[in-house]
Nucleic acid binder design. Structure first.
Lengths: 111, 111
DNA sequence: TGTTATGTATAAGAATCTTATGTATGTTTG
DNA sequence: CAAACATACATAAGATTCTTATACATAACA
């Protein structure tokens, strides 16, 4: 997703946060939502998204539900109980990460 | 560096920012500085640091100067002109990244 | 009828990091 | 005084995550 290497490692957290917020979403919907929220700055590629969803499912953090809408398949994902707990942890880690990065990059704000 | 995958991709930016701030630094010094600034939360491993420094040097963003202090070798790195320009770009990308992540994770703050 | 949008999927390769190991000197501590 | 820890660099094997490319399928639009 995107050119900047900075986003590497953050995709899982983004997915889980969006699912926490919206209950259930399908892959394509996630890409569009992220694009909208970031005003087009962050474009998740399918090659990153689908393997990530499959892995989160395999780890027991997501449940799948297949629907057919307008004759097109959709795989809706939602957080499991375990996934909800993990989401809290990952969001906390993300906050720590952002705080640390700001300390490193904007040291004047510390005082 | 660290357990959380979030830091993946941010090491180069961290290095360049520290060099911009401190003029010149050697590898071990960078690891200690980062540990101090983040209160021990972020520990850069040598396996990540040294290859990163070598690559930045190969790309023309860093210059090296070897010194011997207390009978121990130190390789001081500093930004080249090209490296200074690149640092500005990467810090700007980092700010965009942090802003985008906050929009995704803390959407209520947008309004 | 060709392009764009919607929708999922995988495979090859690139980039970045972890873990482990190696070398070497200086300092502290039991 | 010997072992552990701190300082200082380096690299190699493997894991993880992503990009790029490709594939399949339906619907809408121009």
């Amino acid at each position: 997703m995107k050119n900047s290497q900075l986003y590497k490692g953050s995709l899982n957290t983004i997915i889980m946060k969006l699912l926490e917020e919206n209950g259930k979403m399908y892959g394509y919907e996630i890409t569009q939502k992220v694009k909208a929220i970031t005003q087009g700055e962050l474009n998740i590629t399918e090659g990153a998204l689908y393997p990530a969803l499959h892995k989160l499912e395999a780890e027991g953090f997501l449940d799948v539900e297949i629907e057919k809408v307008d004759n097109r398949m959709r795989k809706y994902y939602k957080l499991t109980e375990s996934g909800e707990k993990e989401t809290v942890n990952r969001l906390s880690e993300l906050e720590d990460f952002i705080r640390n990065m700001q300390s490193l990059v904007n040291p004047k704000l510390e005082f």
